[in-house]
């Protein structure tokens, strides 16, 4: 699972920054083209839901998504890891 912020919906209220127990969300430093400081993600792979949702088959934590007044936070399914054949060019 991958944590994403939809920057077309985010209004930059920073509530997610306040509630995330892992402090994954950091206040944004640059404004996007709508003039909104969308929070930045600090090592989102630490998110419990990202790590453990496939294992438990239910939503874990999820406070950031539920408190986000603008419905901007969601988790995307990621394709499971597939071994790649690495071609090394000399």
């Amino acid at each position: 699972m991958k944590l994403v912020i939809d920057d077309t919906r985010c209004k930059g209220c920073n509530l997610c920054v306040m509630v995330c127990p892992y402090h994954i969300f950091q206040e944004g430093r640059t404004s996007n083209r709508r003039g909104i400081f969308v929070p930045e993600l600090d090592r989102p792979e630490r998110c419990t839901n990202c790590r453990l949702q496939p294992l438990y088959q239910r939503r874990l934590c999820g406070v950031c998504q539920m408190i986000c007044p603008d419905q901007a936070i969601s988790w995307l399914h990621e394709a499971p890891f597939e071994p790649h054949k690495v071609v090394i060019e000399y």
């Binding site: 539920m66 007044p69 603008d70």
Partner: peptide
């Protein structure tokens, strides 16, 4: 939960930081 939203109308008119959206989330959840 996303299916319960009229996605074509988002983002909504609430001010930045308004908690109404949170309550809609909790209700739809």
């Amino acid at each position: 939960v996303e299916d319960w939203y009229r996605v074509d109308r988002l983002p909504h008119i609430f001010c930045a930081g308004c908690g109404n959206g949170t309550i809609i989330n909790c209700t739809l959840e």
